[in-house]
Amino acid sequence: MTERNDDLAAQSGAYALNALSPEEREAFEKHLTASAETRTETTELSDTAVALGMAVDPVTPPPALKANLMAMIAQTPQLPREVEVVDDAAKVVQPAATPAEKKAQGRWFTRPATALAAVAAAVALIVAGGVVADSIGRTSLQETSFAAQQADQLAAINGASDSQRLVSTVTGGATATFVWSVELASSAVIVDGLEPLPDNQVYELWYIDSAGARPAGLMDASTDGTTWRVLDGKMAAGDVVGVTIEPKGGSDAPTTAPIVVFESA
């Protein structure tokens, strides 16, 4: 099998350049766990490939891309941390490893999680219908910055230390989530599968307290997937939030019964 291993070791350059087929890549990674020498070399060649990447002219992506991402991460869980048992074992076996070897071991023994692409795709689908995704690259600057602002606010609410959420069912069957932070005095409504309205109608959000209902913004149902909006105005603890269907342009006070109501505690 030495011959085969030599052949594998010779693929370090192709591996670092991502020029191997998926099967070859897998075989090579298996070989990496067995050969400290190849590991060190591969780490160095991968860093060399990074230098090639650093020589490419940077291009600033459209602002909506960031807005979309901020909305996505607010709803995307992170992988749990790995317990690096393998690393310790490797150190015991090869106590005299050079710093480079240690660096290489660390890098190659902990494999990146697979199937992430699928998760990413799924999340992309979930968010794709939202106000932000629709705006990627093809909206006016004004819409883009509104979307970016909304996304940043949603991220802030989700990230707040006192962030809370409630899930409820909308009249008609869609699932709505209400997320809020009293600290930030801000909240958002996220609806999965909200039904599109005729052109002359719009969804309106309301903050409701003992003094009555205050308009808190309008939203249109996204064509597929998720519709969401950060509410305008300040939220106070105990505020009730409702969504109604109003004539195009919105109303100053609700004119129909709410399709969903949330009571923040």
Binding site: L69, I73, R81, L116, A124
Partner: peptide, 9 residues
């Protein structure tokens, strides 16, 4: 998005 998910690693 992958950076966000795998930063823990």
């Amino acid at each position: 998005l992958e950076i966000w998910q795998t930063a823990t690693r």
